[in-house]
């Protein structure tokens, strides 16, 4: 009995994962083959075929080819929405580390009913993108069109904006997030060879293994927009120096972002670094008349421009 429920559960979870994958491929306009599904879900070819058969029997995919039916798409979008909303929830409302979000959401998405998802949506203020930059389907199932291309398709010297960072595998994702690259960073590709890429942003350079270029989706800058060489991170401001705040990166989110906004960390605010803890963090910044201490990780997410005293 217990054994049975477990097999049924895992079968349902498998179906949900498969549907989510199909919906993602449809959105990315990628071809799906029985092999790619089996690989994604780490199944043997035979198991993969059985799964596809089950999907067809349940009329979730079309009988002839691997394409979602109307009801299949509806179900798939629900799972996708549950996953992305839950990741948004984890990012905004909890202290879990970014590298944990995907795993936790993968576990939780199956337990959320449609009502739960609606409630979560409301509680989060109806977000439109998850923390990785993926769109969250609206209640009518709409999603904005896919934009951008992988960073790997661009040459050295190219300048553009990051719009999406793939959260798998976790070790690459955590390296990207450690460098405080976010889904609104303007970057320049400084170097690319067979081993590594070097990215320039906000006055700093970061080197990554080459695979990282496959994980970052970028778009061209809007007309008139350019990479501003004078923009830096607040963490680089020496004690006694003055700067103007340009904005906060999208990595600063939820409660923390609202707190900092309310404290006056808004574009145009003039700030002076006043006090530094001997260990380098936190640093006290004069912001709108008060001295506010920020830790290094927080100051990394605030963009500034140096101004004359």
């Amino acid at each position: 009995m217990c054994q049975d429920t477990q097999t049924i559960m895992s079968e349902q979870i498998q179906i949900q994962h498969a549907l989510k994958f199909l919906a993602e491929c449809e959105y990315e306009r990628q071809e799906v083959t029985p092999e790619s599904i089996a690989a994604k879900l780490t199944l043997s070819p035979a198991e993969g075929a059985a799964l596809l058969h089950n999907l067809q029997v349940a009329e979730l995919i079309e009988p002839e080819r691997i394409r979602l039916t109307e009801s299949g798409r509806d179900y798939a979008l629900h799972v996708l929405k549950a996953h992305r909303l839950y990741e948004t929830y984890l990012a905004k409302k909890t202290g879990h580390h970014a590298s944990q979000w995907h795993k936790l959401a993968d576990e939780r998405e199956h337990e959320l009913s449609r009502q739960d998802v609606e409630k979560l949506d409301e509680e989060l203020g109806y977000p439109r993108f998850d923390p990785h930059g993926d769109p969250i389907p609206s209640s009518t199932g709409e999603m904005p069109n896919k934009r951008g291309a992988l960073l790997s398709t661009y040459p050295v010297g190219w300048v553009g904006r990051v719009i999406h960072i793939e959260d798998e595998p976790a070790h690459l994702y955590s390296r990207i997030s450690q460098a405080s690259i976010s889904t609104d960073s303007i970057i320049r590709l400084e170097k690319k060879d067979s081993l590594e890429i070097v990215l320039y942003l906000e006055g700093e350079r970061f080197s990554f293994p080459l695979e990282v270029a496959e994980k970052i989706t970028v778009v061209e800058l809007d007309a008139g927009e350019q990479l501003d060489e004078t923009v830096q991170r607040l963490s680089r401001l020496p004690i006694g120096a003055q700067a103007q705040i340009v904005g906060m990166s999208s990595l600063c989110r939820g409660l923390e972002r609202n707190r900092l906004l309310d404290l006056g960390v808004v574009p145009g605010t003039i700030t002076v670094a006043e006090l530094m803890n001997p260990s380098g963090s936190p640093v006290g910044y004069r912001i709108r008349g008060a001295c506010i201490a920020l830790r290094k990780e927080q100051a990394d997410r605030i963009r500034i421009r140096n101004v004359e005293q």
């Binding site: 409660l255 609202n258 707190r259 906004l261 309310d262 404290l263």
Partner: peptide, 9 residues
């Protein structure tokens, strides 16, 4: 005492 009325604390 609050800094704002906008965030959800």
């Amino acid at each position: 005492g609050t800094y704002s009325l906008l965030s959800a604390t």
